[in-house]
Amino acid sequence: MLSVSGLTVSYGAVLALRGVSLEVGRGELVALLGPNGAGKTSTLGALMGLCRAGGAVCLDGEALLGRAPEKIVRLGMTLVPEGRRVFGGLTVEENLRLGGAVQRDEAARRRQYAEVYALFPVLEERSGQLAGSLSGGEQQQLAIARALMSGPRLLLLDEPSLGLAPKVVDTIFGLIDRLRASGLTILLVEQNVDRSLEIADRGYVLVGGEIVLAGTAGELLQSQDVQRAYLGLAS
């Protein structure tokens, strides 16, 4: 579904991505793992058209590089950005409404609301509340729900567990698993290696702007040494 080859991103003189290639197949949950500063967010930014990039990105045969983010969203790929980035001054409902801004069809939008509220009942309870007043976990749910409102085929998640309490992390990973089960294709960026690989089909390890390791979730889970070496985790 998504195929990325030779992706490069640079910030001035700093080369943040040095030719990243990866594939995400239809219905797959693929994890992109890496330590701080590895270039994970840059990769997603390049995919979404948020930063200038070199190489090639194809979504179902359609070339994406050089397109504006708003266009890419309309093509069916949506990003849940790092740090949630919900609109704190807007209500939960308004956040969701913006997420569904690309939906032209009123009936489809209504369906989308129903689906999202079924998935995130807490959001329906708080629909009139300002997003800024939600807890971190709720905000993360809102960020995901908002992304779903556009009815994506491929969902990009950037560190959804960042800064959340362990219990909340459980909830979030549970949700991601359910989304995958419902047939959504997902590219999950995470530093929480174990939890990610538990639910992922495959994974890539990104270090210093390069993919250093790729394999099925099982393979990567087993290579504990690699994990320690590259992700600097103490298990």
Partner: peptide, 24 residues
């Protein structure tokens, strides 16, 4: 209005508003 909500959102966080598919 959709326009107004988008304006408020963009005033808060422009890039993320574009991620909602709203044209810059």
């Amino acid at each position: 209005t959709a326009f107004g909500v988008a304006m408020r959102a963009a005033a808060e966080d422009f890039d993320t508003t574009r991620l909602m598919g709203i044209r810059a």
